[in-house]
């Protein structure tokens, strides 16, 4: 199973998570988002970039409550809450945004 973009193949698992985090690029993120029926707005990107930074530092995709708390700290309560994140990513911010960010499925996510 793989994404196809500009003649390059990007392997992913049965749920669409990239096999190799290092091959990720913005165009690929747009493609994954499209498959999730999402249009990437600036706000969507903010979450994706935040997740990538978190992963870079801690080598882990955070659980949703950890993401909410960390977003709250960085961007304030109007963005650091469940409702805001679920509005952007209706099928679960950790799940969808992590997939688009090229990260593995969050640990503890079933």
């Amino acid at each position: 199973m793989a994404y196809e973009l500009n003649g390059t193949t990007y392997e992913h698992d049965e749920e669409g998570y990239l096999a190799d985090i290092n091959v990720w690029n913005k165009e690929l993120a747009e493609l994954i988002a499209k498959e999730e029926n999402l249009d990437m707005s600036e706000e969507h990107w903010e979450v994706v970039n935040f997740l990538r930074d978190y992963y870079e530092e801690y080598q882990i995709a955070p659980a949703i409550r950890v993401l909410v708390k960390a977003m709250k700290k960085s961007f304030g309560p109007e963005k650091g809450n469940n409702k805001y994140l679920y509005t952007l990513y209706p099928y679960g911010p950790a799940k969808q945004a992590c997939k688009i960010a090229g990260l593995p499925k969050p640990t503890g996510c079933v």
């Binding site: 530092e57 801690y58 080598q59 882990i60 955070p62 659980a63 950890v66 708390k69 960390a70």
Partner: peptide, 14 residues
């Protein structure tokens, strides 16, 4: 192999 030692530093968030 993956270096998972940075993840211990995320424990506080959890």
């Amino acid at each position: 192999m993956k270096n998972f030692s940075p993840t211990y530093r995320a424990l506080g968030d959890y």
